[in-house]
């Protein structure tokens, strides 16, 4: 008999925690059905994390696709089913993408396994990002360059540290209630060894009395520590951090049982969450908002409960 994981109707980064909480009770070798029938929308993080979930299982799980046509259509356009059918049993043929007009998908879900994948991702994103980031989000040319650099570095973390492949996706949408602006979101998820085990692979690096996933994230994300002793290492996450800070964006990294975030004024997430249900690998989300309109007040903090990402 399979354990059933119910995917929430709105699958974004916070909602994926509900999936992880259900998963915690299921042994890795147990049969599993991921029930996404009632899902109406998923962020790039939600979609790539679902792929990482399957990657983490010892027995190939089953997947029940969303029932809503528009959801299936959108997930197809993101490339989700193309990757998912290699990881999940669908029971019937996975839905296929149909031609669509303008899409908010800036980069389809793309597998990251080696350095050449990073080149391909950066090359693809440049074709669309200049126009979309400048015209739709009002970001200047320097921001679009830094965006590509951040994307490159986030993907390289998978190649260099995960010990197995991962996925990246990039999308724009309007985050109406919390921010009232469009955002562009990069999600990079894998079910590899995670930050703690990556840092532990360097036996020379001193560790304090407290050593856990939260500390490993603090070391890597805030202090530029890498498993490599080379002084030049650790600059990728430092570069992402400085980009996110400069453009009032948000960076969150989940690994193991902890999640760390650089939280901008417009958000009220905790900077560090620990003792979360365990999930292998690393899950990274970078959110960059559109340039603030002149003379428009920033939405008040504390609107989190009502906030929802609204897909255009």
């Amino acid at each position: 008999m399979s354990a059933v994981l119910t995917v929430p109707p709105w699958l974004d980064e916070p909602a994926f925690e509900q999936v992880v909480a259900q998963l915690a009770a299921v042994p890795p070798d147990a049969r599993l059905l991921v029930d996404a029938r009632h899902v109406r929308w998923a962020s790039p993080y939600g979609l790539t994390a679902l792929l990482a979930l399957a990657q983490s299982r010892e027995v190939r799980p089953a997947f029940a696709a969303p029932e809503a046509d528009d959801t299936v259509s959108y997930w197809s356009r993101t490339g989700f089913f193309r990757h998912a059918e290699q990881l999940y049993d669908f029971g019937r043929p996975a839905p296929r993408a149909r031609p669509a007009g303008e899409s908010s998908v800036l980069l389809e879900i793309t597998a990251i396994r080696q350095a050449s994948d990073v080149h391909d991702v950066v090359g693809q994103i440049q074709e669309r990002s200049q126009t979309i980031l400048r015209d739709q989000l009002g970001l200047d040319s320097r921001a679009t360059i830094r965006f590509s650099m951040a994307l490159s570095e986030a993907c390289q973390n998978v190649v260099e540290h995960a010990g197995r492949g991962g996925w990246v996706a990039v999308q724009t949408y309007t985050w109406k209630k919390r921010l009232g602006r469009r955002v562009v979101v990069i999600a990079v998820c894998d079910a590899g060894i995670g930050f703690r085990r990556s840092l532990e692979s360097n036996h020379q690096r001193p560790r304090g009395d407290r050593w856990d996933d939260g500390m490993a994230l603090e070391q890597a994300v805030l202090r530029n520590v890498s498993r490599f002793t080379d002084k030049g290492r650790g600059q990728g996450l430092a570069g992402i951090r400085s980009f996110v800070t400069k453009w009032e964006g948000k960076l969150s990294v989940r690994s193991g049982t902890a999640r760390i975030a650089l939280v901008p004024e417009w958000d009220d997430d905790p900077a560090l969450a620990e003792s979360l249900p365990p999930f292998p690998g690393a899950q990274v989300q970078i959110t960059i908002p559109a340039a603030a309109p002149q003379a428009t007040a920033t939405p008040a903090r504390g609107a989190a409960a009502a906030s929802r990402l609204e897909l255009l």
């Binding site: 350095a115 050449s116 990073v118 080149h119 950066v122 090359g123 440049q126 590509s148 650099m149 490159s152 390289q156 190649v159 260099e160």
Partner: peptide, 13 residues
């Protein structure tokens, strides 16, 4: 590295 590339990205590159 590759005849198609114009971006200097990744450490191996």
């Amino acid at each position: 590295v590759c005849a198609l590339y114009s971006n200097l990205v990744t450490r191996p590159t």
